[in-house]
Design a protein around this nucleic acid. Structure first.
Length: 496
DNA sequence: GTAGGGTTAG
């Protein structure tokens, strides 16, 4: 692309003005690069938007297709506001969005969990007499599935397949994937039987989905048997088929079996992707073959398989466990060097590494500097550091980070409070545990049996009967009464 | 001469 752009600049220098076709060719290039994924993705949207600006300023009209390409890219990075502005812009210019344009937006929204907004757009397109097709329906179905609302998804699916004569295997695949994601392989298999009864031809994705389902339920035999079924249907196992099985082998610690599969796929000229290599790296890490996995990371680039965040996170996590934190941070720096933005998970792994295997002070420093840099973090970054401070007994720091977590607007669950209270009780820091317990109550979260047991035990150990009664009263309020009689016995026992 | 959308794996 760089050369293509340079060439275009050359054209202009020589007085040859680019025209609409020139721009479309460049747009296609950026789109392809975007599809290839990895580090350059976001940079390409910017280039694409720049091209649009340039075209508009030169008085060219973009086509509906060019707009769709831009919309597709924006959706992939969840930039929906900008996408909707572009949609508005195309309408203002007299370009009528069609079923594909709408499907792109609907799919983008669904994929990122914004099903509600997707359905609004869906209704809008229907009002404008643009008829939804399989692509549109598939997007909505996927959205409902990914929200985990499987029964609603099934209703939607059943409606689709009964109201139409022609059936679409992709809809089946999406529905089966929904079941598999929830670990319900049985329902997925039933759907598979249903589609074979209806003489619908399964695709390789159908089988990959089933294989994934079996692997998830530790039914490796069944997964393996599907390889023959694939061949029976005249299909060829894809890179996803192999990678799924390799991952399953990796998970059960059969690294040799995993490598065997890698050799087999290469022998059959199925090219491993960056996901495949990430699985292999994970396997090597499991065997503590860190040098080898770093070597593979380098080899990937040479083979044109750009490692992504997950690839790096895998090795970084292993380096942390091996207490080689400097090498872990070196890889983090390498990500930046390659224009690969570390993900929130990368930082969770590094912070956890410093907390558990390094110096807690460095973890504090890292988190604070990330906040300064406005790097986006997940709640886990905070819970990790809070837990570490609780475990080491530095409650004041734990409280500071806990409040920061609240301020950032993260939803605090009972599990987060339990994690803190458990650790404080373990260190007999009763007053501190009570502090968090009260905070939890004022947060509107009711305690559960487990958390109360932990605290009661701790109070008992310290002979703090006042606290015992106080907590028992609170338990009565919350309806956690089942063990009250036993506690009374305890009380009598300790009074004798 | 150019040109848009769905499902699967880490």
């Amino acid at each position: 692309m760089e050369e293509a752009l340079e060439f275009k600049n050359d054209m202009e220098k020589h007085g040859v003005e680019p025209d609409i076709v020139t721009y479309n060719i460049l747009a296609k290039g950026f789109h392809l690069l975007g599809l290839m994924g990895g580090a350059w993705k976001t940079g390409n949207i910017e280039e694409g938007l720049k091209l649009r600006e340039e075209m508009l300023s030169r008085g060219f009209q973009l086509s509906i297709i060019s707009y769709s390409v831009l919309l597709s890219c924006l959706c992939k990075s969840a930039r929906f506001e900008e996408a909707l502005i572009l949609l508005y812009e195309m309408e203002a210019l007299g370009l009528k969005p069609d079923v594909i344009t709408y499907s792109i937006l609907i799919h983008g929204l669904c994929k990122k969990g914004e099903v509600h907004r997707a359905i609004l757009l869906y209704e809008e397109m229907c009002l404008r007499r643009i008829c939804p097709n399989y692509f549109t329906h598939g997007a909505i179905l996927l959205g409902i599935c990914e929200k985990g609302n499987i029964s609603e998804a099934r209703k939607y699916f059943d409606n689709l397949i009964t109201s139409d004569l022609v059936e679409d295997i992709v809809l089946y695949n999406i529905m089966m994937g929904g079941y598999v994601k929830l670990g319900n392989i049985a329902e997925a298999v039933q759907l598979y039987q249903k589609l074979t009864e209806k003489k619908i031809t399964p695709s390789i994705v159908t089988f990959n989905t089933l294989i994934h389902g079996f692997c998830k339920s530790n039914k490796l035999e069944e997964a393996w048997r599907l390889l023959d079924t694939i061949k029976l249907h005249g299909l060829v196992p894809s890179v996803v088929t192999y990678t799924t099985l390799m991952n399953a082998y990796c998970e059960v610690g059969n690294i040799d079996g995993m490598l065997e599969l890698l050799r087999e796929m290469e022998a059959k000229a199925v090219m491993p992707t960056h996901v495949t290599y990430t699985v292999v790296i994970k396997g090597l890490c499991k065997q503590w073959k860190l040098q080898e996995s770093i070597k593979l990371l380098e080899d990937m680039r040479a083979k044109g398989r750009t490692p992504d965040q997950i690839t790096y996170n895998t090795i970084i996590q292993c380096l942390c466990k091996a207490r080689d934190l400097s090498k872990a941070f070196q890889l983090h720096d390498e990500m930046l060097l390659h224009n690969l933005e570390p993900s929130p998970i990368t930082y969770n792994v590094l912070i956890n590494g410093l907390c558990v295997y390094g110096d807690l002070k460095d973890a504090d420093k890292l988190l604070l500097s990330l906040e300064d840099q406005k790097v986006s973090l997940t709640k886990v970054a905070y819970t990790t550091i809070v837990k570490a401070h609780c475990a080491k007994g530095d409650v004041s720091r734990a409280i500071i980070f806990f409040h920061q977590m609240v301020e950032k607007g993260f939803k605090i669950s009972i599990r987060d409070y339990s994690a803190v209270i458990n650790r404080l009780c373990k260190r007999c820091l009763i007053n501190e545990a009570k502090y968090f317990f009260c905070m939890m109550l004022s947060d509107g979260i009711s305690p559960d049996q487990e958390i109360c047991e932990v605290m009661l035990n701790s109070f008992h150990q310290q002979g703090d009967l006042y606290s015992v009664f106080e907590l028992l009263a609170e338990m009565i309020k919350c309806g956690l009464l089942c063990d009250l009689s036993m506690r009374n016995d305890d009380f009598h026992a300790s009074h004798q």
